[in-house]
Amino acid sequence: MNIFRLAGDMTHLASVLVLLLKIHTIKSCAGVSLKTQELYAIVFATRYLDIFTSFYSIYNTLMKLIFLGSSFSIVWYMRYHKTVRRTYDREQDTFRHWFLVLPCLLLALLIHEKFTFLEVLWTFSLYLEAVAILPQLVLLQRTRNIDNLTGQYVFLLGGYRGFYILNWIYRYLTEPHFVHWITWIAGLVQTLLYADFFYYYFQSWKNNKKLQLPA
């Protein structure tokens, strides 16, 4: 464990807590993309299949349970909670996210480190996570008024993988043979997708203006 990875995990944890806080306290998911939340639930379900077979640490297992629990409960809230589901803007959240799942699955079948069931699904989860934010970014472009909590959620979610990139650099420099091109490239693509959001987020923060993405 290194400080970059810890910072990344804490930032990631903060992002899901901000979202759960928003949904649970103000009983609203306005501006939140259900498609992105469903994709993240799939990412965690396929990434943490080894939760019962391989144990690394209490921390590792605990965080996996938190991410699994939070992502599925957010999907549940947005789909089935009587009050929250009414605040979901279904007409705006129209990204065909299943068109992301299939290419990621095909790519995982083609490019992976080992051709085993767990490894292919794990690789699939890396590719899917890289693009999972797209429905949310598209939704933010459509809904002009981005409330603070949703903006913070996307900002933290984008920041965590950035810390992970620093973690991979650190591990590459300190651990012999730590080379994982697939993880690195997927993580880099993921972070780059947030680039324009980060730009407008900082602009709004610097000028103390409401966050607005260009249409």
Binding site: R5, R47, R171, V179
Partner: peptide, 10 residues
């Protein structure tokens, strides 16, 4: 077992 090295990450 460097392959698993990335598996200890979340």
């Amino acid at each position: 077992k460097d392959g698993s090295a990335a598996k200890d990450e979340l």
